[in-house]
Structure formats: structure tokens, C-alpha cells
Simulated scan of single mutants.
Amino acid sequence: MSGALRLGAQGGGARAVCVLVHGRGQSPEEMQSHILSRLDVPEVAFVLPRAPGGAWYAAKAVDRLTADTRAALSAALDHLAADVAAARAAHPGLPLVLAGFSQGACLSLEYAFAGRPAPQALVALTGCRVGVPADDRPQSLPPLLPVYLTGSDKDPWIPVTAFAEAALELGLARAQLRTDLFPDRGHEVSDPEITMLQRVLDDFCTRSATGMAAPR
């Protein structure tokens, strides 16, 4: 299969849009079964981008940036930007939430920090910046962007130190930031994270902002 997967509300039935980015070795169909099936948001249109070969870039997120990784990341960001633009064109005027899991969360963070056309909110489920703090990385996050960032002290892909570094960079960039660290949680999307994504989407379906106020 190729191309983004489009699900949920369509046409005049949509009141918000969510672009949901899968992780390494995953697919839009897995995001549908692991995340969308646990949501109750009939007024949200979903666009699920598809990475060529199932990965957005080959390196680990916490590896130093190389020329090859920068090139792959740039191509992935262009791919994501095209899907975001297509989602906006299909649903003009609606608020758009950019969300991702694991490598998809990392890519979504890089999209926002790169100064690409901003979503109305960013939900990074188990994410961090790509590269290390010593790398020259974009710092063009729109101020006051609502961001929900999660992690775990036991996640095998995103160390808690990388999660904390991302939280620091988001704070310094003046994001409206909420973070949740889930002790002992595996590499998965937990029920509280689903509840928060549900609340963010509900907020945009009923008003123009989100308070990210779901219980943990």
C-alpha cells in the first residue's frame, strides 16, 4: 500500500483534523487499530501519513545527526508537510492537531521546531528531538503552541534524558507545555495518553483552543 490513510469525519461533518504519524516499523493501519479504535471523536477527520519502507529515517532519534540523517529527516519533513497541507486543503478553516507516536512523535516535534506551517496543537506520544543537544538543530517553534509530550523511564527507544531535554527545549521556546512521564510503561500508548488525545480533539471540536486538562 502507498499514500496516507484517510479516516473519520469527511466534508461538512468534520469540525477538526488530526494528522497522526506512525512510528518506526509501523503503518497507518496500526495507528488505526492501536489509537483510533480507542477514541470516540466522530467529528474529527484523520490523515495518517505513510513512511516509505515503514520508517521516517534510519538512525535512532538519540544518535548524533549525520549528513545522511539530516537528508532523510529533511525528506520526511517534506513528506509530512505535504500531508498536512493536503489535510488543510481538504478541510479548510478547521483546527489541525499534529500527533505522533515514537518516531512519529519525534518527526512531529522536528516539524514544529523547523518552523513549518504550525498546527493548532502538537501531541507527541513518547517523543524527543532528533539528534543530541550539541547538534545544530532548528529552534523555530511557534511561541505558545499547545504541546503534550509523554515518555517513560523504561522506554527502550526514547530515554528519559532525551524526553527531559525535549521538555526543556519546548519550555525555553515558550510552548504551552504539558508533560507526563509514566514509570514502568512499555513502548506503547497508555490509556491516560489516549484520554489526553481525546480531550485535545474534543476541545477543538467544540471551541478554538485546548486546555489539555484531562486527568492523568
Rank of each mutant, 00 (worst) to 15 (best):
A85F: 04
A82R: 14
S74V: 05
D83V: 05
L39T: 08
A72T: 14
A89Q: 10
R88K: 02
L48K: 06
E43R: 15
R70W: 01
A81P: 10
A45Y: 07
A67K: 05
W56G: 07
L39A: 01
G53E: 13
R50G: 07
V62I: 15
A45T: 13
A90M: 00
V84T: 04
V41P: 08
A61F: 11
D78H: 15
R70V: 12
D78M: 07
R50I: 12
A67H: 07
A81V: 08
D68C: 05
R70N: 06
R50M: 13
A55M: 11
R70M: 10
A75L: 09
L80W: 08
V47H: 07
V41L: 13
A87T: 04
A55D: 12
L73Y: 03
S74R: 14
V41D: 06
P42W: 05
A87C: 05
V84A: 00
A76M: 09
P52M: 10
A75K: 15
V44I: 08
G54L: 00
F46C: 01
P42T: 00
H79G: 08
V47C: 12
P49E: 03
R64P: 13
T69E: 02
K60M: 11
A67L: 14
L77E: 14
A89S: 10
T66G: 07
L39C: 02
F46T: 11
A59G: 02
D68K: 05
P49M: 09
S74H: 12
D68M: 10
K60R: 14
H79S: 10
A87R: 03
L65M: 12
V62H: 09
A71C: 06
D78P: 08
A89D: 15
E43C: 03
S74F: 02
V47M: 10
L48I: 11
D83K: 00
A76S: 15
V44L: 02
A76G: 05
A85W: 05
L65W: 05
T69C: 04
A45H: 11
E43P: 04
W56H: 06
V41K: 03
A86F: 04
D63I: 10
R50T: 15
A59F: 03
S74P: 04
A61E: 06
D78W: 09
A87F: 01
A86W: 03
L39Q: 12
L80E: 09
